[in-house]
Design a protein around this nucleic acid. Sequence first.
DNA 1: GCAGCGAAAATATCT
DNA 2: TTTTCGCTGC
Length: 679
Amino acid sequence: MKRFILKKETQKPSEYLIKYSDLLNSQQLKAVMHDSGPALVIAGAGTGKTRTLIYRVARLIESGTDPSSVLLLTFTRRAAREMLDRASSVLDERCNRVKGGTFHFYCSQLLRRYHKEIDFPAGFSIIDSADARDVIQMLRAELKLNRSDKRFPQKSTLLNMISGSVNRQIELSDLVEQDYNQFRDHTEEIGRLKKAYEEYKRKHHLMDFDDLLIRTQELLNTDERVRAEVQLQHKHVMVDEYQDTNALQSALVKLFTPYTQNVMVVGDDAQSIYAFRGADHKNIMQFPELLTGTEIITLEENYRSTANILRVANSVLDQARNKYEKKLFTKREDGELPALVKTEDTREQSRFVSQMIMNLREQEVPLHDVAVLFRNARDSFDLEIELNKKKLPFIKYGGQKFADAAHIKDVLAHLRVIENPADALSWTRILMLIDGIGPKTASDFMEWLSGNTNPYELASSGLVNESYKSGLYSLSQLLIDLKNGSFTPYEAVGHIKEYYSPICEKKFDDYPKRVKDLEALHALVVDYRDYKHLLEELALDPIEATAIDVEGTSEDEKPLVLSTIHSAKGLEWKHVFLIQCLDGVIPSSFSLNDEDSLEEELRLMYVAVTRACDMLYICYPMLQHGGFGDVMTKPSRFIEHAGQDLLEPWLLTEEEQPINNENLLPEAGAPIKQLNSGK
DNA sequence: GCAGCGAAAATATCT
DNA sequence: TTTTCGCTGC
């Protein structure tokens, strides 16, 4: 029998403008050229995962795929933006028309488009977890659940439970049983609270982060027409950082999957660090079961780190109980041996790090190629003081977000009631700012507000009491102005700031700092066209950097990066300092009793180590100054047994500097290390 | 019903 | 160390 081969209608490699085969290794090329059907790319740290995705986007578009039929789901919106920008620069502008963003962002877009089908108004508000906790707190008091003799969980714990059951797609009662055994007597009340919370959100047109995902799932599961429409829009779906998706998100991937089954997911099971959000690192290995016929491509050549850094990384991973099928290799040279720096205390650690960074800067290493990483946002507080002292500019990622601060939320709440008059949460917030109005009065106003066509005429409510009359009038006047004035967000925030500043001064002792933040907010909203976009952006894509500048950063030198390890995911720097590398910090003391959590901390350590290209410095202080005197510390168990063939111990020597004893370390340029061979 | 104070408890990582 | 709770006086 004669076989006739039907050629697929794709361009031949030779016809591509971009010379993919020159730019990529064979495995990367395989992923980039992968055409149809599901694919799983297992990409170890530093193996060019992002590069592969970027070239795949370019390749698809070069082959004639309509950019708007490509969906690229990433972990942060910043990541999506950067990838598409880079794809545009290797190919052309068309790449910027690819649909990209986080699951939450894409779902919010779908829900706004199909708001009728889910019986919500298009102007629903998205609430962040701080808002969600406030609602829960309120309902908790309302349901009188806190009156019980036995301890009832705190609002954050409650939200963790509710959110956990949603994201992992398991029953709340089972979750309480498994993970919160100490509260099992309250299972029934917790269930009631969950129900009340859901009713409240529906009534006031609010959606929390989980709702964005769950409502989309419901919509696509129940409405065949919408599902078909959505699936038709995707020719290709790509998901980055798939190891950090949860059960709900993988269900969504399946629902987005077009009939062509063109789904490519990329990730590294050894870098899964979001279990606390319901992510399951096993998810990625089970992807072939989600979509049958999955092609598996593995990237193993690391281009980022020196061989010595990779050896440390591998020794971390070797401690895992869960063995990862990963043998990263590099053609890079050994490089310097990573340093293990033991300091007297946290102060000395800060002085060492800042001094080293100044030395590096003198050796022409730009500040921006250096990063300091840590487990918790607060672990860098002391260093921040030192950097300020030395006038080293830095930017910090992770920790409390700018938009989480109470004063920022206060200001934005005024805009939110304009956008969504049913947003009782924001109403309560802004009413309680007025002297004389507490929870009871605020809730009386809520009563009046529901079903009132002009909620901003607060004076006509018949609730006006002498004690808060003037405050209420000013608020009412402000809101009416905002509603009718058709201001830009910049003008609106200006008005609110004027109204709010005196309140801020009275409410907070540290108001100078907060007033400065308000200025920053004001400057920042200049780019937004309307309230809706502003509020949505701030909820889904909060300003990542929490801090801010240093005085005396005259030059436009790009700053040093301080970051939590979580926020450092996917990034790399030439020199990386890992500070506070202590047992109880990493691994966190909360994780010590649980195998799975401990394993996640180990992966976190792995992520931290693999961020470094040229040089890695692992630092820990021997003493921790606490409230009740000094506490001896233990270095992290993950590095405790690393031999001197892996990590070179550095001995810090103090140099006498009678003139200025702030500067106890050797001057820049002077040798700072000695081999601690004698131990 | 509100605000302020002191005691007690919890305490991270992020969309 | 900071946030939350409960109590007291206005």
